[in-house]
């Protein structure tokens, strides 16, 4: 993104097939957006100063600006807070537009490296957040070293991994799923 953000919309870049792709990826009410701006007024991304926040993302998605949306990393800073879903007068579920853009981006490996780190931890340990030194922290709180989750039961973890392998993770993971 250039200094000052995406301020000029180039309609020659509009790609109808990208709108359809986003609709199929969960943004099924995308076309109903009237650009009223209520979502932008409550969006933490806007408050935090990410220039490409929800209202503009939905606008660009509606125009099918594939390159603009896949090159910009703002969607990965979305807090998933769902304020926009709560207040949208057209009930287009704006957050689902963000998720649809993420889903399209992942397919072309246009996502931050930490996305893969979370997925790798999720697959290997059953936990996307898996910080070192937890055994010591658990001891301080008077708890057993490991919690009774997938981490503690290899047989159940293997089953969990099997269900994950039956999703699109199998196709997109840049790490071995064995």
């Amino acid at each position: 993104m250039e200094e000052g953000g995406v301020n000029v919309i180039d309609l020659t870049q509009a790609d109808e097939s990208f709108v359809k792709e986003l609709e199929a990826l969960g943004a099924d009410e995308l076309r109903e957006c009237i650009q009223c701006g209520k979502c932008g007024a409550t969006c933490p991304m806007a408050l935090a100063g990410l220039e490409f926040f929800i209202k503009r993302l939905v606008h660009a998605a509606n125009l099918g600006l594939r390159e603009v949306l896949l090159d910009d990393s703002s969607v990965w800073g979305c807090q998933s807070c769902n304020r926009c879903v709560e207040i949208c007068p057209m009930d287009i579920k704006p957050y689902e537009v963000i998720q649809a853009i993420r889903r399209a981006a992942v397919k072309v490996e246009s996502c931050p490296a930490n996305t893969y780190e979370g997925l790798r931890n999720l697959y290997r340990f059953g936990h996307a957040v898996f910080p070192k030194g937890f055994e010591e922290r658990r001891k301080k709180a008077g708890l057993p070293e490991k919690p009774p989750t997938a981490l503690s039961f290899e047989d159940l973890r293997k089953k969990y991994q099997e269900i994950l392998r039956n999703t699109i993770l199998e196709e997109i993971a840049p790490f071995p799923l064995d």
Binding site: A128, P148, A150, L164
Partner: peptide, 12 residues
Amino acid sequence: EGAACCPAYGTM
């Protein structure tokens, strides 16, 4: 027993 991550919004 065996529960995993919810999974976090940025993953699945």
